[in-house]
Design a protein around this nucleic acid. Sequence first.
DNA 1: TCAAAAGTGTTTTGTATACACCCATGA
DNA 2: TCATGGGTGTATACAAAACACTTTTGA
Lengths: 255, 255
Amino acid sequence: MELIGHSVTGSTNIHADAEYPVRAHVRKARVLLTVECLAFSFQYDALKILLFKGGSNGLNKWSFAQAVVGENESPDDTARCLMRGSTGISTAFLEQLHTSDGIIKLPGERVVSVTYISLMNGFKLDENAGNNLGNKWFHLDKLPKLRNDQREMINCAINHLRYKAALHPLLFELLPDRFTIPQVQNLYDSVYNAQIDKRNFSKRLLSTGLLIKTADKDRSSKKGASYYQLNKDLYNPRSLSLIKLLPNLHTFTGR
Amino acid sequence: MELIGHSVTGSTNIHADAEYPVRAHVRKARVLLTVECLAFSFQYDALKILLFKGGSNGLNKWSFAQAVVGENESPDDTARCLMRGSTGISTAFLEQLHTSDGIIKLPGERVVSVTYISLMNGFKLDENAGNNLGNKWFHLDKLPKLRNDQREMINCAINHLRYKAALHPLLFELLPDRFTIPQVQNLYDSVYNAQIDKRNFSKRLLSTGLLIKTADKDRSSKKGASYYQLNKDLYNPRSLSLIKLLPNLHTFTGR
DNA sequence: TCAAAAGTGTTTTGTATACACCCATGA
DNA sequence: TCATGGGTGTATACAAAACACTTTTGA
């Protein structure tokens, strides 16, 4: 560690005294900056996570989407570009989860990775997009063999997603522009691995005022469920104001 | 951006096709990694933020604690070391807020900064510690002249602190080992710039089960307020389970 | 006509809020 | 004895939870 600019003498380290010892000569780290995306989507009534074959692990191992941050890019840019490039669609919601400690990975090179959680709209995905790129969407209960630290990262990301989505209307990013209430409930049931009471869920959902009923119905079921749209005037997945869509908010736990 | 390891041919960029264009040659960024700490404490019944004179802004300007991440340090290490070195006490709570875009600051050098929010225990602070190091704790309503982006960062950090503390028992880190209920309330009133009803606040506070009453009293008031301690078995400032200490949780807003 | 899924309402229970008085003590 | 700050209780209103039946329609 080297303190920045707190010196009036030109010395780089005015705190190197007996009481608050700081190493006198710290070699400044120049690091290779990468991003890593844990990408989720909702397809076929289930939450999916995106994995790639042939990552830094080895050619036949699965891992997350990763990219090196270019000289003229921000990490956010890189993450968006990575996701677009590897799925063909834009990221609906992107958030930094954590910046890694920067353990030595490549020989002689320190790599610091910014980990993102990324929500991709499964309904905009081309069915075949990415198949030739070696990526695949996995059901969370049907994951391939992964390193333990990768499993942990997935758990961490899911917990984060559940946490955020319990408080904010984040998950609508995973739905098409028009959706039905049973569809929303399937999404929440899938994310929380739960069976939420449909009467109470629909009451909570409608009471947010975020949904606008349309005249059309989804005709894939016998009775047909009404389509709803988001009220764009109110909807903001990043809003700090809290919504409540889940019962027993204080008791939910991880998978 | 350069994708990592998704190539079976050795080329660095298998996605450089017409459909998903990616620049064919991206210069990998080697960046100087720094940390920046927005540190809060609770002193004299008010929330304070730590600023340093003579930061990267210039010798007579105030700014946040900053340090370069050393070769053998993680950013978290650096942040803790920075805070300990500049205040004499350990950080009670540390959390990454954001990793910056890494705009060019120093000539020819790209600097990426990991911003932290840091809670320091004001009751463990040596009254004079740091005075000779050019740091000072400022009341949030009595800040010195700062750059606009620094003001924004402070607002962002306060909003984040309020958000987290409204949901989790984070603020106890700012109190001494033994504290009184009126003291906790002063803390919350200060953080939220509010006057919370003391009867309801004390009910909520005690109903969490986090507090254990001791036999002793603080004798600085006439009647004397009972000292409480945290129930270490239950207390976890990072716990994902939610507590409610504030009224109208869904409506609170920033300063 | 029946099976499948959508849609809706009420009762009960619990929790948040608003609000005001008594208590203990040092000065 | 009185001013100061600590401590408590209750009635009311609101919100959450539990719970079951009716509707629509394609097969």
